[in-house]
Amino acid sequence: MNDTFLAELSEVSKRFGNTVALDQLDLQVRSGELFAVLGPNGAGKTTAISLLLGLQQPDAGTALLFGKSPHEVETRRQIGVMMQEVALAPELRVREQIDLVASYYPSPLSPEAAMELTNTASLAVRPYGKLSGGQKRQVQFAMAIVGRPKLLFLDEPTVGLDVQARELMWVTLRKLVNNGASIVLTTHYLEEAEALADRVAVLAKGRVVASGTVNDLRALVVRKHINCSTTLTVEEIAAWPDVQSATTDKHRLLITVSNAESVLRRLLAADHNLREVEVRSAGLAEAFVELTQETKS
C-alpha cells in the first residue's frame, strides 16, 4: 500500500453472472486531487465505486480505503458519499436528513453549515419528498459533506441540476479540494471533468482505457481540427495523407487531421492566400468517444 493513495483498486475483477463488470482494474485516488471517472453506461464506474465503498466484494484483487478494508466503519468515517439512485425517507425534513447523517461522524459540520455550503438553507424545513429532483441532489450533496470527509465519492452528482446549481456545486467542490479534501467523481458530463478534474480515468468494458490529466488525455488522442479560409477544394484536401475528413462551412474549411504539422505545411505551400488559420485540440468529449470506441471495436 502506498500511503499517498486514499483509495485503491488493484487488479480487481468483478462479474455479474456472465457479464464482466470489471476486468483486472487498477485505480488509485491520491490525496488532495479531484479524480474523475468517465465512461459510457455499463463501463463499470458505479461497480468500481461500490467496491471502494465496501458495498460489494471483488471476485479477485483488492479494494482498499485509506489502506484498510472499506468494511471497517472507522475507515468509512473519513468518507462522504453521494449515490446515483437513492430514495431517502420522504417524510423527513431536509435539516433532519442532514442531521441524521452528521450523527454518524466524529466531528461533523452543523447541519446549518452544510446547508449554507450547498445553498440548501432555504429548504431546511421542507419535507424531502416534496423537493424537486435537483433540490434532492443538492440535499444529498449536503449529506455527503456534513461529516467533513477527507475523501468524497460523488456518483453523477450534477445530474438533474440547473446551470446555476451545477456551477455552485462546482465552486463548492473546488473549495473542498483547496481545503485539502479529495474527491472521486463519476460523470458523463465531460465538461464537468474538464472543468474540475486534476486527473481523469476513462473506463470502458471494465477496464481503464486511458488515465491522466485532461491534457494528457487530449494529447493521447492526437487528432486536431484545422479551420481556415482557402481557395483549395474540399475534395483536393480530403485526398491528402493525414487528413481524416474535410468539410466546408460557407467560406471556411474544417479539416480533421491526425498530424496537424504536416497538413499545415502542405496547406501553406499549396495556397499562398491561406487566411484565418486556427488549429485546436479535439475536446475531451471527442477524446472520450474515440477512446471508448476503440475498446468496442
Binding site: R148, P149, K150, N179, G180, A181
Partner: peptide, 16 residues
C-alpha cells in the same frame, strides 16, 4: 452565480 464562503471553523477535512 452566488459566491459562497466557508463557515468559520467548519472547513471539511481541515487538519484531520
Amino acid at each position: 452565480m452566488t459566491a459562497i464562503s466557508m463557515p468559520a471553523g467548519s472547513t471539511p477535512a481541515r487538519q484531520h
